[in-house]
Amino acid sequence: MTGTATQQEPVDPGGTTAGTNPMVGVVLVSHSAAAANAVAELAKALTGGGVDVPVAPAGGGPDGGLGTSSDLIAAAARSVDRGVGVAILADLGSAVLTVKALLADDELPAGTRLVDAPFLEGAVAAVVTSSTGAAIDAVEAAAGEAYTYRKL
């Protein structure tokens, strides 16, 4: 599953700037709705002006508390799907497992993949890369490279 098969057929031009390629969607799955929302907000803010990257948080469980909701994840992935792939970043445990289970059963838009990356730093890298109109392979690589960014 390379995820770029539908690149020639943008499903929905929304979330793109006029005259540029459709952007890769980014979904942020956290046990905490507040964490997912805040990381999405931070990543978008660091992207700079003028480009509205399709980013959707999917935080919290089915009852609204801490946890993971497959329905929220699926809805978020659909909402950011512009036909060129969706990169999902997840925080821990059930967030990762739920995304994997949904992917295994083809319950997410075509071209959706789980990206192996640190949640916050990876989200920033993914969203910034997506804002340039890069393909999902580049978005995934940028997010993964965030693991190598040492602080000391």
């Binding site: 508390g65 946890g67 993971t68 329905d71 445990g93 059930s94 739920t98 994997k100 289970a101």
Partner: peptide
């Protein structure tokens, strides 16, 4: 189970049964 459990046991038991 995958859509209602909310913890790791949701995707794990969900995958088992599916």
């Amino acid at each position: 189970l995958i859509s209602t459990v909310g913890g790791a046991s949701g995707p794990l038991y969900g995958t088992l049964l599916r």
